[in-house]
Computed example of a mutant assay.
Amino acid sequence: MYAVVEVGGKQYRVSEGDIIYVEKMNAEENSNVEITSVIAVGDEKGLNVGAPYVEKAKVTAKVLKNGKQKKVTVFTYRSKKDSKRKMGHRQPYTKIQIEKISA
C-alpha cells in the first residue's frame, strides 16, 4: 500500500517504513505526526484519488530529526561595476519515518 501526501507544499509518494526529508515542521523529535492531506491511496485493488484530498485517510509518521541541510553558497556580482556579495544558506528540514497508512 502506498499514498501520495502533501507536506510543506510538496507532494511525496510514501509507503510504510519509508524515511523522507520534508520542510521543517513544528514537532518535537520522537513524536508522532498525523498527515491528513492525502491526495491518493493505492493498493492491490486500485487507486483511490481524492478531490482534492481522500476523505478519512491519514498517514501516521514519527519525527526522527530536525536539522539543517548542507550550506549552499550564493554569490552575486555585477560585472564591471565592482559590486559583489557572498552569502550562505542552510535550509531547515524534518526527517520523518512513515509508520502507518490508513484509508
Score class of each variant (00 low, 15 high):
residue 1 M to F: 07
residue 2 Y to K: 07
residue 2 Y to I: 11
residue 2 Y to F: 14
residue 3 A to D: 12
residue 3 A to H: 04
residue 3 A to F: 01
residue 3 A to Y: 04
residue 4 V to W: 03
residue 4 V to T: 01
residue 4 V to H: 02
residue 5 V to M: 06
residue 5 V to E: 06
residue 5 V to C: 03
residue 6 E to G: 02
residue 6 E to V: 02
residue 7 V to H: 02
residue 8 G to A: 12
residue 8 G to S: 09
residue 8 G to R: 13
residue 10 K to W: 04
residue 11 Q to A: 06
residue 12 Y to G: 05
residue 13 R to E: 13
residue 15 S to G: 11
residue 16 E to N: 06
residue 16 E to Y: 13
residue 17 G to M: 10
residue 18 D to K: 02
residue 21 Y to D: 13
residue 22 V to N: 12
residue 22 V to P: 04
residue 23 E to T: 06
residue 25 M to I: 14
residue 25 M to W: 07
residue 26 N to P: 07
residue 27 A to G: 07
residue 27 A to C: 04
residue 28 E to D: 15
residue 28 E to T: 03
residue 30 N to G: 09
residue 31 S to H: 00
residue 31 S to P: 05
residue 31 S to M: 00
residue 32 N to A: 12
residue 32 N to F: 15
residue 32 N to P: 04
residue 33 V to W: 09
residue 33 V to M: 05
residue 33 V to G: 10
residue 36 T to E: 14
residue 36 T to S: 08
residue 36 T to I: 03
residue 37 S to P: 00
residue 37 S to F: 06
residue 38 V to R: 00
residue 38 V to Q: 04
residue 40 A to Y: 02
residue 41 V to M: 03
residue 42 G to L: 09
residue 44 E to R: 11
residue 45 K to P: 02
residue 46 G to N: 03
residue 46 G to Y: 09
residue 46 G to Q: 04
residue 47 L to E: 03
residue 48 N to A: 08
residue 49 V to W: 11
residue 49 V to E: 05
residue 50 G to K: 08
residue 51 A to V: 01
residue 51 A to I: 00
residue 51 A to D: 10
residue 52 P to Q: 00
residue 53 Y to C: 00
residue 54 V to K: 06
residue 55 E to I: 01
residue 55 E to F: 00
residue 56 K to N: 11
residue 56 K to Q: 11
residue 56 K to G: 02
residue 57 A to I: 07
residue 57 A to P: 02
residue 59 V to I: 13
residue 60 T to P: 06
residue 60 T to E: 07
residue 60 T to M: 04
residue 61 A to E: 10
residue 61 A to L: 05
residue 62 K to D: 08
residue 65 K to A: 09
residue 65 K to E: 14
residue 66 N to I: 11
residue 68 K to A: 10
residue 68 K to Q: 11
residue 69 Q to G: 08
residue 71 K to C: 01
residue 79 S to H: 03
residue 79 S to K: 14
residue 80 K to V: 13
residue 80 K to Y: 08
residue 80 K to P: 05
residue 82 D to R: 14
residue 82 D to I: 01
residue 83 S to K: 14
residue 84 K to V: 02
residue 88 G to W: 02
residue 88 G to C: 11
residue 88 G to I: 08
residue 89 H to K: 14
residue 89 H to N: 09
residue 90 R to W: 02
residue 91 Q to L: 11
residue 92 P to V: 12
residue 92 P to C: 11
residue 92 P to M: 12
residue 93 Y to V: 03
residue 94 T to M: 12
residue 95 K to P: 12
residue 95 K to I: 10
residue 96 I to K: 04
residue 97 Q to H: 06
residue 97 Q to V: 11
residue 98 I to E: 03
residue 99 E to Q: 14
residue 101 I to A: 08
residue 101 I to M: 07
residue 102 S to K: 09
residue 103 A to C: 05
